[in-house]
């Protein structure tokens, strides 16, 4: 029930504080949630990926996260500096369904917030919940170390409830990943992102130079 009430709150909030205000609220909540979940340290990528698979990391709050271990991200020297991860079902879908079967339809503010985010921040939101979701992940990455290196999160692609997709071309270019490959991942997954060691010299960056 709380999530359905939250959707109602988003509409109310957007009418009172504007969609920009709702985005700011979501940013603060994303930061706060990540910070209150505490820090984590892993000896290396295998231990991080196992922790993720077993649902022991802060990221596990998003549901079942799959480490696509065949998709290692390497730096200019060929060393593994990150991986691609995917979520099978968008965390907001159960809420959308609950709203659908209790209220009737999702309030207009949902798409209005997503559109404002896409226009003013980054073109990666398919619904209002992407705003907190992506912010949360960025902030959590700052609290996790793998082999003593802080992590950085890149949103790569996502698919909304009604099938619309977002592909983030810029980070894909930076990581040296073909956008069409990530697009094909959206057949099976709702949200695809990368976790990379902060400061790593990525292949795509070298090509740009």
């Amino acid at each position: 029930m709380l999530d359905v009430a939250l959707v109602s709150l988003i509409q109310d909030m957007s009418e009172k504080a504007g969609v920009e205000g709702t985005i700011q609220y979501w940013f603060r909540v994303g930061e706060s949630l990540a910070n209150r979940m505490g820090r984590e340290a892993y000896m290396g990528w295998p231990s991080f990926n196992v922790a993720l698979r077993e649902g022991r990391t802060a990221f596990s709050i998003e549901g079942k996260v799959i480490a696509l271990t065949d998709l290692a991200i390497t730096d200019v020297d060929g060393d593994v500096v990150g991986y691609i991860y995917a979520i099978e079902e968008c965390v907001f879908v159960p809420t959308i369904l609950r709203v659908r079967y209790s209220v009737g339809d999702v309030p207009r503010a949902d798409q209005a917030v997503a559109e404002e985010y896409n226009n003013s921040i980054r073109d990666t939101a398919v619904c209002n919940f992407c705003v907190i979701h992506q912010k949360f992940r960025e902030e959590v990455a700052k609290n996790i170390t793998v082999a003593d290196q802080l992590l950085e999160s890149y949103q790569l692609a996502n698919r909304g409830f009604t099938g619309e997709t977002k592909i983030a071309e810029e980070p894909l270019k930076k990581l040296g990943i073909n956008p069409e490959y990530v697009r094909s991942l959206l057949r099976n997954y709702a949200c695809v992102y990368a976790m990379v060691m902060k400061g790593a010299r990525l292949r795509g960056e070298e090509v740009e130079e």
Binding site: D3, L9, V29, L33, G63, V91, F92, P94, T95, F129
Partner: peptide, 9 residues
């Protein structure tokens, strides 16, 4: 279950 949404709320 979608704990993220509930906790975020």
């Amino acid at each position: 279950n979608n704990p993220f949404v509930d906790v975020a709320a």
